[in-house]
Amino acid sequence: MLSRTADHLYWMSRQTERAENLARMLDVHYRHSLLPHTPEDFERQWTATLSSLGQLESFQSAYGTLTTANAFNYLAFDRENPGSIVSCLGAARENARAVRGSITSEMWETLNTTWLDMRKSTSRSAPAIGPFLEWVRYRAHLSRGVTLGTMLRDDAFQFTRLGTFLEGADGTARMLLARAQPGMELIDNATVPDSYAWTLLLRSLSAFEVYRKVYRGAVTPRRVAELLILRDDLPRSLHRCMQELHANLKLVGNEGSDETARRCGALYSSLRYGRIDDLSAQGLNVYLNQFLVTLADLSWRIARDFLLPATVY
């Protein structure tokens, strides 16, 4: 397929997935804001989220003071912020529009309707954040469903999936990172002071009920980390995302992409055969930061190998 088409498909799905991840991330804060909390808690949590997204500085220069309203506005509704939910959904739609011939009409109509509805609901003033986040997740379910339900399993599908799982791994890692203080130990004890925060994290990743099913016990940081990083059967776990990324990368492989596939395979193997004890010894914060660096390298390599062939013929 055309490299440019692959590029648009890849970014269409990355932006769609990113909007969903942001909605999940903001959902943690929304639920928090409904609970009793101290100003220090509040500031620490938002700072952690903004820095895990790499957007703390840009937020500060755009808004100055950190308030809940400012933070929600910046990450959900701000058209000036290319990393906000509305910007991601707009970019996803623009990418889809550029390749509307390569996706099914149903997919295009789903992404286009999301964008049209979003413009309508956010044109005058910001809507209530809770229902908006719910709506974003609902539209994400639709996008996923229409992709899986209508697309031919060809290279267009595989590039779409590459974007989805690369961004999926990125999102889960960042959400964990926002909770993982440097030097924090992965305690396997329910009496940790902020155990409720770990529960919220699970809920936002649609993993709370799964957790109960798998562990049948109290929510502990260690088990949460194990579930979200190492389990192969949780759709948003790092293991699962890397497995899919690796499989799809093999399917689209070309003459120049062996090294990228090898690096992807190495990261996948480390998750497949990794143990939570080793990870805990290394430190969750350190581990996650390293994971994100490797993922960024993969993302750069995928772009170079497939999406922007720089070769001058």
């Binding site: 397929m1 055309l2 490299s3 440019r4 692959a6 290279d155 590039f159 689209v252 070309n254 003459e255 497939f306 999406l307 062939p309 013929y313």
Partner: peptide, 9 residues
């Protein structure tokens, strides 16, 4: 005339 594709020209 060639197209630039993910599998080469």
């Amino acid at each position: 005339v060639y197209m630039r594709t993910t599998m080469g020209p």
